[in-house]
Nucleic acid binder design. Structure first.
Lengths: 159, 159
DNA sequence: TAGCACTACTTAAAATTTCAAAGAAGGACC
DNA sequence: GGTCCTTCTTTGAAATTTTAAGTAGTGCTA
């Protein structure tokens, strides 16, 4: 396999993939104790922070990095459990918005301390400030770039 | 939401989650051009590096961070496509091993350059050496710790 | 060497995710 | 106002993943 990645970067990539996989698995498992998946939790957080505690489906999908149909399913499931409600959008009748319910907010408030503790113990407590700064810089830059690239590719052409 | 995570670490966590999600999505999408999922590719890599190009199901599952039944499905699917073969283990008849086929090796050789280029362009080309070193250190440590924690929790008790 | 607890893996059914079409509005143009 | 193209979201079927049992085989203990 001709190495198109130098050994340092290859090791970096592998460590990142494996550790991230383990971390996500662990965080999900901890969250399950509060009856939520990570996706559930993430939806609740985003809605709780949004003005009027509601977001358009498209906006939510984009922030969660979910496909539209995955989000439809996700929100339907949360709706069945009473965590969110769906309302059709007043100004654009094609659209609909997910709205946080009181029960949803409650569920978030219940789970948040455990979840944040889980993030601390599994990841953050082991990082010093310099490492936190490095990760933040790297991943914010990466996220911005990938987000921009996706927008560009959905736009007609750049010839 | 009482912040059990200071703002810097919260921002770090969010950036990490979102960028990682976008990155995995992108890498998967690129790999699909060669007819492989990331899981397929990862299996092929691990088998190609193993002695006699074969690994026990359990070992493979542990390295991929897959549940046993997910791996059973994954290997069955790859077997249907001729990328791997399954052989029952000579020394422990409960076990079976996944074995790389010639076609599997070919598929890996075909896909590898594209995949590695994809990792470079989406991630590595944007990182300087210090950042690579930092990520490697952080994620190797994290991976080791989470792996050890999992082993410990599957072991009876520690009283 | 029978009994029992445990390990490795598979299977079956349910839940989730993807993929490929829808449907239902908006908006531009004539 | 009637086409045509695009966007926002949902649907339905297929593929994948999880969850809960099941099947064998191992190996300790008595």
């Amino acid at each position: 396999m001709t190495e198109s990645l130098d050994p340092e970067r290859m090791a970096c990539w592998r460590a990142y993939i494996e550790a991230s996989q383990r971390l996500f698995t662990q965080i999900e498992e901890d969250l399950r104790a509060d009856g939520l998946s990570f996706a559930d939790y993430h939806v609740l957080v985003l809605l709780s922070e949004a003005p009027r505690q509601r977001l358009r489906m498209g906006e939510l999908a984009s922030r969660l990095v979910f496909s539209p149909s995955r989000l439809t399913y996700q929100i339907s499931a949360m709706q069945r459990r009473g965590l969110v409600t769906r309302q059709s959008c007043p100004d654009d009748r094609r659209g609909s918005e997910a709205v946080l319910t009181a029960a949803g907010l409650l569920a978030l408030r219940d789970a948040a301390p455990h979840h944040l503790a889980s993030v601390r113990t599994h990841l953050m407590d082991d990082l010093d400030d310099a490492e936190v700064a490095c990760l933040t810089r790297v991943f914010e830059r990466l996220g911005r770039r990938l987000h921009a690239a996706r927008d560009a590719s959905s736009t007609p052409a750049d010839n």
